[in-house]
Amino acid sequence: MPHEDDRTTILLVDDHALVREGLREILETQEDLHVVGEAEDSATSVALAEQTQPDIVLLDVEIPGGKAKNTVSQIRKRSIRSRVIVLSMYEGPQLVQTLLAAGIRGYLLKSVHWQELVAAIRAVRADGDRVVLGVSGGSLRYVEQGSAANALSPREREVLDLVAQAFSNGQIAARLDLTEATVKRHLRNIFAKLGAVSRMDAVIKANVW
């Protein structure tokens, strides 16, 4: 049995008392997990995170009092050690991407089996850089593409903006005072970062419309 001080401390955040009670009952059956608090809205979750400094915050994506992204940012600011795992009824790939940028360490659907939830908590606690996503392959690809798009340099973004406007390589070169060879090099880098197979594919994946 783990020493009490070694247990993973968890803050539950959900506006439904029944959900919180169910989660607590499940988690407290595990000797290495310990629920240290419950909150039903954004402000209370931030205050409790600051007070209890939990290892893990299980956060319902639709709690009252503020957007999930802002709640995550506030929790991480008040409790640096806390790692946030979001629980949601739906996938929402754009939301997943936004929350990953805010610093969450997991996004799981509420339909997951309790054993998957426990495994995710343990994985995130054991490795601070670990991110656990319980979403479909399609949503995961969307998130990966979005991450790649964010990796484009300012110049690559400029080139792709002009590609989206149907400019040729020669026209792009003239507009940006570059050589055509340089434009082609930027396009090769863009294709590689986005996993794109054509100019149109790159525009779509980078979402520059």
Score class of each variant (00 low, 15 high):
137 G>H: 14
97 Q>G: 13
58 L>P: 09
105 R>F: 04
129 D>H: 09
13 V>Y: 00
129 D>S: 12
16 H>M: 07
174 A>E: 13
171 Q>F: 05
1 M>G: 11
163 V>P: 00
42 S>E: 03
48 L>D: 12
188 R>M: 09
61 V>C: 08
73 S>C: 08
21 E>Y: 07
58 L>G: 09
197 V>W: 08
82 S>Q: 01
66 G>E: 03
209 W>E: 10
125 R>Q: 09
186 H>N: 12
105 R>T: 07
24 R>S: 14
51 Q>A: 14
109 L>Y: 07
74 Q>E: 11
119 A>S: 14
5 D>G: 15
11 L>H: 01
194 L>W: 04
134 G>F: 06
161 D>E: 15
165 Q>R: 14
16 H>P: 07
73 S>N: 14
124 V>M: 01
44 T>K: 09
63 I>E: 03
157 R>T: 13
168 S>P: 07
80 I>V: 13
121 I>S: 12
130 R>V: 01
41 D>S: 11
188 R>Y: 08
78 R>W: 05
76 R>I: 06
185 R>P: 06
44 T>F: 00
46 V>M: 09
187 L>V: 11
168 S>M: 10
202 A>W: 00
63 I>N: 05
13 V>W: 00
164 A>Q: 05
113 H>M: 14
203 V>D: 00
49 A>T: 02
153 S>H: 03
189 N>M: 14
185 R>S: 15
3 H>F: 08
158 E>P: 03
4 E>C: 06
141 R>G: 02
190 I>E: 00
52 T>Y: 12
170 G>L: 07
200 M>K: 15
167 F>D: 07
89 M>Y: 15
5 D>V: 13
35 V>Q: 05
70 N>Y: 10
164 A>F: 01
96 V>C: 14
24 R>F: 06
70 N>Q: 14
145 Q>E: 11
198 S>E: 02
125 R>W: 00
88 S>I: 08
25 E>Y: 10
122 R>Y: 03
161 D>M: 12
92 G>H: 15
50 E>S: 15
28 E>L: 04
178 L>R: 09
20 R>L: 12
120 A>S: 12
198 S>I: 02
132 V>W: 02
7 R>C: 14
68 A>W: 03
124 V>A: 05
198 S>V: 04
167 F>W: 08
53 Q>W: 00
34 H>Q: 10
46 V>I: 15
187 L>N: 02
80 I>N: 12
193 K>D: 05
23 L>H: 06
138 G>P: 05
65 G>A: 08
65 G>D: 03
200 M>T: 14
183 V>F: 04
88 S>H: 09
57 V>N: 02
81 R>F: 04
67 K>E: 10
169 N>A: 10
194 L>D: 02
205 K>Q: 05
104 I>Y: 01
113 H>F: 12
76 R>M: 12
181 A>T: 15
95 L>I: 13
